[in-house]
C-alpha cells in the first residue's frame, strides 16, 4: 500500500529519465546507426555498408588482440582491487590508533589526476633510472623490465590501476560494513563467533551486495582502460597493451572515422554487458519487498 502510488513513483524517477534521456538518447542512437555506415567527417556524407565495419574489425588481428588484452586486464585488475579493498575494509572496520589519519591516506591515490598518477609510475618503471629498479638493486634483486617486457607490460599497468582504484572498492565495501545494523553484528558477538570465522560466515554474506557492486563498477571502469596505456606505453610494446578503448580512440579521435569508431564501441559494449550481466543481475535483484 505504501509503495503503490504511481504518481509518487513518476515524481521520483522523472528527473533521472529526463536528464539521461536528453543527454544520451541522441548519442546512443547515433552510435548504433553509425556502426553500419561509412561516414565522411568533412562533408558529412555517409552510406550504408551493412556489416562491413564489423567484418573489417574482426579481420584486424590488432583488434582481436585488443579484445584479449582488455578482458585479461579487466579480470586481473578488478579482482585484485576488490580483494585488496575487502581486506583493507575489514582491517579498517576495527578501530586502531590513527585510523582517522590512515583513511584519507589510503584513499589519496584516487584523488590524484590519472595523468599525474600514470606519469609517476612511468618514471618508477624506467629501466635505468626508475625508483623500482633502484629499490630492487639496493636489496640485491636484479632490475626488472616492467613496461617493455611484452609479457609483463599489461600487468605493470594493472598494478598502477590497482594502486589508484583499490580505494574505490575499499570505500564501497567499508560503507557496506558500516551500514550493517548494529544488532546483527552484536548478535554475532553474543553467539560467540569470533575472528575469521565470524568474518567468513556472518560479515561477508551481509556485505555481499557491496562486494558485487564493487566488482561491477570496477569491471566496467577497468574495461574502459585508456589514459594509463596512452601515457605509459601507447599500446606497445608490440601490441601487448593495446586495448579496446585505444582502438575506439584511434578511430574516433585520430582518424575521425565515425563508422569504425561506432562499430568498435558497439563490440565493446556487447562484451562488457555480457561480462557484467551476471553481477548486475545479482545487484539488481533481491531484497525487494
Amino acid at each position: 500500500m505504501l509503495f503503490e502510488n504511481r504518481k509518487q513513483l513518476s515524481t521520483l524517477l522523472l528527473p533521472a529519465i529526463v536528464v539521461l534521456g536528453l543527454l544520451t538518447a541522441y548519442p546512443i542512437i547515433s552510435v548504433v546507426y553509425n556502426a553500419f555506415l561509412s561516414v565522411d567527417i568533412g562533408s558529412g556524407q555517409h552510406h550504408f555498408v551493412g556489416m562491413a565495419n564489423f567484418a573489417e574489425l574482426f579481420d584486424d588481428f590488432f583488434f582481436v588482440t585488443a579484445i584479449q588484452n582488455t578482458l585479461l586486464f579487466t579480470v586481473v585488475a578488478s579482482t585484485a582491487q576488490v580483494l585488496l579493498g575487502l581486506v583493507l575494509a575489514l582491517l579498517f572496520h576495527r578501530n586502531f590508533p590513527g585510523r582517522r589519519f590512515a583513511l584519507p591516506v589510503i584513499i589519496y591515490p584516487m584523488m590524484i589526476s590519472t595523468l599525474v598518477c600514470s606519469s609517476i609510475w612511468r618514471s618508477w618503471y624506467h629501466y635505468d633510472f626508475g625508483f623500482l629498479n633502484a629499490a630492487f638493486v639496493s636489496v640485491g634483486l636484479p632490475p626488472q623490465e616492467w613496461l617493455f617486457n611484452p609479457d609483463f607490460a599489461l600487468y605493470a599497468i594493472a598494478i598502477v590501476d590497482t594502486w589508484q582504484w583499490t580505494p574505490m572498492a575499499f570505500l564501497i565495501i567499508l560503507a557496506g560494513l558500516q551500514s550493517v545494523p548494529k544488532d546483527i553484528s552484536d548478535a554475532a558477538m553474543v553467539d560467540g563467533a569470533t575472528g575469521w570465522k565470524s568474518t567468513l560466515y556472518i560479515t561477508l554474506p551481509l556485505i555481499q551486495k557491496q562486494i558485487l557492486l564493487a566488482f561491477l563498477l570496477r569491471s566496467i571502469d577497468t574495461f574502459k582502460l585508456f589514459d594509463k596505456v596512452y601515457v605509459m606505453t601507447g599500446g606497445g610494446p608490440g601490441n601487448a597493451t593495446e586495448t579496446l578503448s585505444m582502438f575506439v580512440y584511434k578511430y574516433g579521435f585520430r582518424f575521425f572515422d565515425l563508422g569504425m569508431a561506432s562499430a568498435s564501441s558497439l563490440v565493446m559494449l556487447a562484451i562488457s554487458l555480457a561480462m557484467t550481466l551476471i553481477y548486475a543481475k545479482r545487484v539488481m535483484k533481491g531484497g525487494k519487498q
Partner: peptide, 26 residues
C-alpha cells in the same frame, strides 16, 4: 525497473569518446 537499470548501466559502459562527438552537436 530492470530495463531502466540496464539502460543506465549501458550508458555507464559507453566509451566517453564515442559519446563526446554526438554530444558536442547536441
Amino acid at each position: 525497473d530492470y530495463l531502466f537499470l540496464l539502460l543506465v548501466l549501458i550508458i555507464k559502459m559507453m566509451p566517453p569518446i564515442v559519446v563526446a562527438i554526438p554530444l558536442y552537436s547536441l
